[in-house]
């Protein structure tokens, strides 16, 4: 047994957790900003897929990975703007629009990918991002190789989490976001533009979802496949709830999920197949549903979530 455990918890394990957690952290932060402003974005699954495709295609055609990241972020922001146009400006029902955005973005991603690359037996791949060890820090035992010899985008995610917390809790804009998500009427009376703030938060959220997509096709897999996102957007929706709409807690939830996922991958590889790996993949969803049942009593969700705001209506 101990030999098996050793095989599972080898040095690369921690590094794998960090790598798996990175796209989830970006996506979760994106969904969190959107929901804190009162807008559920079920378009996340499709936005991640379209951004992943756009980033991969740009990198593949131009040879520049960072240009790919930029395009992925812009596409994410643009699709966030589309969702915001429907849900914030026009006040349409958020869940149905979100499903619409996901269907639209996924369809567009499949369509454009097939149009540009055709049908190939082996999907084209790119030379993706390489780990960039940070001098001195990378030499720390265990932590060094796991955390400080990673992709630049991983470092960006590590910075993004406290930064998101700072923006949300310590800046005037963050205050506006929380106000329009909790009590848009009061925010409006206080002179905060509910429409503008929500619009900005959903676009920022979309950009972060785009970053998540970029990581998948340009650092993690270095190729685009139709299943490249495979439910990670839905996982992010769960993690936001599980992390109680807080950046640090949500990132913690992403790490926890990444740990379970990495464990599952290792167990599959080590032939310890008593438990089907799908049982592990189910866990975040089951945990979140159970957690929602316990949390709802002390109502931690943004009060105005799912509620459109129209100034002239009372």
């Amino acid at each position: 047994m101990s030999a098996v455990l050793e095989q599972i918890f080898q040095v690369g394990f921690l590094a794998a957790i960090i790598r798996i957690a990175t796209p989830l952290a970006f996506a979760t932060l994106g969904e969190m900003f959107s929901e804190r402003a009162g807008v559920l974005n079920l378009g996340i699954e499709g936005i991640m897929l379209l951004s992943a495709m756009a980033g991969f295609t740009t990198a593949s055609l131009s040879g520049s990975l960072w240009l790919g990241v930029l395009v992925a972020v812009l596409v994410g922001a643009l699709m966030g703007a589309l969702h915001a146009l429907f849900t914030v400006v026009l006040g349409l029902s958020q869940h149905v629009c979100g499903i619409g955005v996901t269907l639209f973005c996924s369809g567009l991603a499949y369509f454009l990918y097939r149009l540009i690359f055709g049908q190939q037996s082996v999907p084209p791949s790119i030379d993706g991002f390489k780990p960039v060890p940070i001098p001195v820090l990378a030499d720390i035992p265990v932590l060094g190789p796991a955390v400080f010899s990673q992709f630049t985008l991983v470092y960006l995610a590590i910075i993004a989490v406290p930064l998101a917390a700072f923006v949300l809790y310590r800046t005037p804009w963050g205050l506006s976001v929380r106000m329009v998500g909790e009590n848009p009427r009061a925010a409006d009376s206080a002179g905060v533009s509910v429409i503008a703030t929500r619009f900005q938060a959903v676009i920022l959220g979309g950009a972060l979802m785009g970053l998540a997509g970029a990581f998948l096709t340009m650092a993690q897999f270095n190729a685009f496949t139709f299943g490249v996102v495979s439910g990670r957007g839905w996982v992010a929706i769960a993690l936001v709830v599980f992390g109680r709409w807080d950046p640090l807690r949500s990132a913690g939830a992403a790490l926890l999920f990444a740990f379970v996922d990495a464990l599952q991958l290792r167990m599959q590889a080590s032939g310890l197949g008593h438990i089907p790996y799908e049982a592990f993949l189910m866990l975040p969803f089951i945990f979140t549903i159970v957690a929602m049942a316990f949390m709802s009593r002390n109502a931690v969700a943004p009060s105005a979530l799912l509620k459109p705001f129209r100034k002239e209506e009372r």
Partner: peptide, 23 residues
């Protein structure tokens, strides 16, 4: 019973059932 938002819970159940089917 718990005032849980049905949009999110019904959506997340899709993934649970899918993985059960895969298992």
């Amino acid at each position: 019973k718990f005032k849980v938002d049905d949009v999110v819970s019904s959506l997340l159940l899709n993934s649970v059932i899918y993985y059960a089917l895969m298992a």
